[in-house]
Deep mutational scan, measured.
Amino acid sequence: TEEYEYTDEQQAREAAREWREKGYTVTIEEHNGRWRVKTG
Rank of each mutant, 00 (worst) to 15 (best):
Arg17Pro: 00
Ile28Thr: 03
Glu30Met: 12
Thr1His: 13
Thr1Val: 14
Glu14Trp: 05
Glu9Trp: 10
Ala16Gln: 03
Arg34Thr: 10
Thr25Phe: 13
Arg13Phe: 10
Thr39His: 10
Ala16His: 03
Lys38Arg: 13
Ala15Pro: 00
Ile28Lys: 01
Arg34Lys: 14
Arg36Phe: 15
His31Gly: 05
Thr1Lys: 10
Thr39Trp: 15
Tyr6Asn: 01
Thr1Ile: 14
Gly33Lys: 04
Glu14Ala: 13
Thr39Ala: 11
Gly33Tyr: 02
Ala15His: 07
Trp35Gln: 00
Tyr4Glu: 07
Thr25Gln: 11
Glu21Pro: 01
Thr27Val: 12
Ile28Met: 06
Tyr4Thr: 07
Arg13Val: 10
His31Pro: 00
Glu2Ile: 14
Ile28Gly: 00
Glu5Gln: 07
Trp19Arg: 03
Glu29Asn: 06
Glu14Ile: 10
Glu2Arg: 14
Arg20His: 08
Thr1Gly: 13
Gly23Lys: 02
Thr27Ser: 10
Asp8Glu: 07
Tyr24Gln: 04
Glu5Thr: 10
Asp8His: 06
Trp35Glu: 00
Thr1Met: 13
Gly33Arg: 03
Glu2Thr: 14
Arg20Thr: 10
Asp8Lys: 04
Glu18Lys: 14
Arg20Asp: 04
Arg20Asn: 06
Glu2Ser: 13
Asp8Gln: 05
Gln10Met: 12
Lys38Val: 14
Gln10His: 12
Thr7Ser: 13
Val26Leu: 02
Ala12Ile: 01
Glu2Gly: 14
Gly40Leu: 15
Ile28Pro: 01
Glu9Thr: 02
Gly23Glu: 02
Glu29Ile: 12
Val37Trp: 02
Trp19Gly: 02
Lys22Asn: 05
Trp19Thr: 01
Thr27Cys: 09
Ala12Leu: 02
Glu9Gly: 04
Ala15Met: 08
Ala16Arg: 02
Val37Leu: 09
Ala16Ser: 04
Glu2Trp: 15
Trp19Asn: 02
Asp8Met: 05
His31Phe: 13
Lys22Leu: 10
Asn32Phe: 06
Ala15Asp: 03
Glu18Leu: 14
Arg13Gln: 12
Lys22Pro: 00
Glu5Tyr: 15
Gln11Val: 09
Glu14His: 08
Val26Ile: 05
Ala12Asn: 00
Asp8Pro: 01
Tyr24Glu: 03
Gln10Asp: 12
Trp35Lys: 00
Glu21Lys: 11
Thr27Asn: 06
Ala16Pro: 00
Tyr4His: 09
Gly23Asn: 03
Gly33Glu: 03
Glu3Leu: 12
Ile28Trp: 03
Lys22Gln: 09
Arg36Pro: 00
Val37Tyr: 02
Tyr24Arg: 04
Tyr6Thr: 03
Glu14Asp: 12
Thr27Asp: 06
Lys38Met: 09
Glu9Ile: 10
Gln10Arg: 12
Gln10Trp: 13
Thr1Leu: 13
Glu21Gly: 06
Ala16Val: 07
Glu2Tyr: 14
Gly23Pro: 00
Glu29Gly: 04
Thr39Met: 14
Val26Cys: 08
Trp35Gly: 00
Ile28His: 01
Arg20Tyr: 08
Gln11Leu: 11
Ile28Arg: 01
Glu29Met: 09
Glu2Val: 14
Lys38Glu: 05
Glu9His: 06
Val26Pro: 03
Arg36Asn: 05
Glu30Gln: 11
Glu30Tyr: 15
Glu18Gln: 14
Tyr6Gly: 02
Asp8Ser: 13
Gly40Arg: 15
Thr25Gly: 05
Ala16Tyr: 07
Gln11Ala: 14
Glu18Ser: 12
Arg17Leu: 08
Ala12His: 00
Glu30Ala: 08
Lys38Gly: 04
Arg36Trp: 14
Asp8Gly: 04
Ala16Phe: 07
Val37His: 01
Thr1Pro: 13
Asp8Ala: 04
Ala12Arg: 00
Thr1Arg: 11
Glu18Gly: 09
Asp8Trp: 04
Ala15Gly: 04
Lys22Ser: 05
Gly40Thr: 15
Arg17Asp: 08
Gly40Tyr: 15
Ala12Thr: 02
Lys22Gly: 04
Asn32Tyr: 06
Gly33Ile: 01
Thr27Tyr: 10
Ala15Thr: 05
Gly23Asp: 02
Thr7Trp: 12
Glu5Asn: 07
Thr25His: 13
Thr25Tyr: 13
Arg34Met: 13
